[in-house]
Amino acid sequence: MRKEKNMVLRRRRIQDSRADKAFYAVNGVVMVLLFVLYAWPLWFVLIASVSDPNLVQAGEVLLWPKGFHLEGYKLIVEYKDILRGYFNSVVYTVAGTAINLVMTIFAAYPLSRKDFMPRKTLAALFIFTMYFSGGLIPTFLQVKNLGLYNTPWAMMIPCAVSIYNVLILRSFFMYGIPASLEEAAVLDGANTAQMLWHVMLPLVKPTLAVLVLYYAVGHWNDYFSALIYLKDKELMPLQTVLRDILIVGKIDMQTGGMEMEAIIQKMKQAQTLKYSVIVVSTVPLMLVYPFIQKHFVKGIMVGAVKG
């Protein structure tokens, strides 16, 4: 019987083979092109960062590094703005994400508890801000009024919690944990804090990992907050320095007192800096990704369904 079915399938496949074969062939080509479209730009930046800038500029570098040297990475170490920006970004990302995580748990857990009386009112109050806000200027003035302007706090407090992520975590608290477990904990005499710490949080660890990823990527890649709320160069995060190097083309080199040729040499090196700085700023995040890929996809799913 089964054999017969297989026979039928095979016969059909042979019959339809021309159209289907064409499809698979075209699909294969499209996918290879797509792969190149994604992998090559990323790969190119990587190899250009360790290649001779002259050869890169001349279009000689295509698939493999040429004239291998690490000049670009040496420049990063010498370039004070980048190091400071890197340090600032690490601080903003770590501290900001910690604040985000605590606030998100503090919001999501009460809102998930059916016996918490004002939960519907508060949820509505929070969700409303998703659709309507004061806008750029009133928010800016409020940040100024609170004395956060031009302080590191301006990079963390105005985005202390995202309602979108609160909703994701809340749905995990509500539907991802068997009710019997809660009952058991209550019977064992756990109070609210103990319940949250010992029962709920360990169970939503994967979700928390995804939220940490979302928040951390957001902080690390944030340049607009700095553009609006910061003034001092000492406070600037990496992304602002990157913007100066990559887009504005403003590179602050100590060129005073140098010969013309030396300056030109420096300018050429600066070209490599563009590549190395992209690698150094982006690779750390990409390296984290494979470890939580599984949860990441799940997180997007929940977000898509809830949002």
Partner: peptide, 14 residues
Amino acid sequence: YLPYFISTVVLVGM
């Protein structure tokens, strides 16, 4: 997925 981690600044730089 990888480009998700690229910041807007780096994307425009690229």
